[in-house]
Write a protein that binds this DNA or RNA. Structure first.
Lengths: 212, 212
DNA sequence: GTCTATAGGCCGATAGAC
DNA sequence: GTCTATCGGCCTATAGAC
């Protein structure tokens, strides 16, 4: 029992076949380190220690491979996003995700790839919209509880949060980081106003005052 | 007189040779429409109506070609930026540039290309820093004249302005534009506070009150 | 499922005629 | 400066043996 011969529609081994996973892992690694343009069936095979034809066995075309990789990356990403949203300080958690290099690196790569490989445009656009509305909802909820004097609408704040995060990550990729510290400090000071952080870890007294 | 046989160091015909220009034009067009990965000597030649070997005559390597294109794009970009900075409402003019699709499209492509072609990283980083400090200076000047109650530092505002602009352009490329109108409206309302727009075109009374 | 073999194409780059 | 000719390489993808 357990494996009742289930049928996968699209590709051999719907998801968790180890070789398939190895292929996607290799593709993701190459994409992250050298950009989407460096991802080829041969490079993938070399990285994963396979023959390049196996790549074509699991994914008929490269478009299909990139689609599968995108799906996997999205799934992980929204999983992490959901976890952040469920944390005690959701906005702070989401913000931490946004300025973490590793997350947006692939996102950026996929967005850039759309110009060259238009097939994935709708999927990527949908993903972007989904992220946007999730963050907007989180901000709206926080605003509802701690409304500051006159605040921009939640949707605008969501755009600001996301865009600043992306620029910081993009700059970091270029080796530019001059004004990041004060930008991050500013964003976090604003976040603290609509989502007060109750010093979670016990033992130390309330955060905020540095002993200097 | 006039052409005293001047020597160009790097490539045949330092700058304004028509074929060279045609090559760069073609490269730029392809890059803009299909992404950096679609730019090849053969595609360039086909677009410009040349033989691909001519591309290699003017640019020994593709890296050199992309470097030359970057230099040209930067020159145009900073020219426009300087003009905007000299306008009567510099921040508004710069903002208009930032959310104009055509400018940042190539910038984004070059930034994405860095992952794949690291040679240009320093140059692109320098360009980014130059833009950043120029915008920061404009904002600082405006803040100095019309200081609002409590404003973030100019450098942070510069990051915000640039990042929001980039996200809007990026979204537009994906076909996402749900919250752009209100975002743009918000940014412009903030800009108007630190850089009042004296209704330039005469005939109508002061802007701001809509007859509805 | 993994292999060998191979077709057919675009790529960067060079050599040499004119 | 522009052309023809060409090398060697990497690419996607398919056919077929095991």
């Amino acid at each position: 029992m357990g494996d009742v011969r289930r049928r996968a529609a699209k590709t051999p081994g719907a998801a968790d076949k180890p070789t398939r996973t190895a292929i996607l892992n290799a593709a993701e690694a190459i994409m992250r380190e050298e950009g989407y343009a460096a991802v080829s069936s041969r490079r993938i095979a070399a990285t994963a220690g396979l023959k390049s034809q196996l790549v074509h066995y699991y994914f008929k075309t490269m478009d299909e491979l990139f689609g599968a990789l995108l799906a996997r990356v999205e799934e992980q990403y929204f999983g992490r996003l959901a976890a952040a949203a469920a944390a005690s300080a959701p906005l702070h958690a989401v913000w931490a995700m946004l300025i973490d290099e590793n997350g947006p690196r692939l996102t950026k790569e996929f967005i850039a790839m759309v110009t060259h490989r238009p097939v994935l445009r709708r999927e990527i656009a949908g993903s972007a919209e989904r992220t946007r509305s999730l963050i907007t909802a989180l901000i709206a909820r926080a605003l509802n509880e701690h409304a500051p004097d006159h605040s921009p609408p939640a949707s605008v704040l969501a755009v600001m949060m996301e865009s600043i995060g992306r620029l910081i990550v993009s700059d970091a990729g270029l080796g530019v980081s001059a004004t990041h510290d004060e930008t991050i400090a500013f964003v976090e000071s604003q976040l603290a106003r609509i989502e007060p952080v109750a010093s979670k870890t016990p033992g130390r007294r309330a955060a905020g005052a540095k002993p200097s």
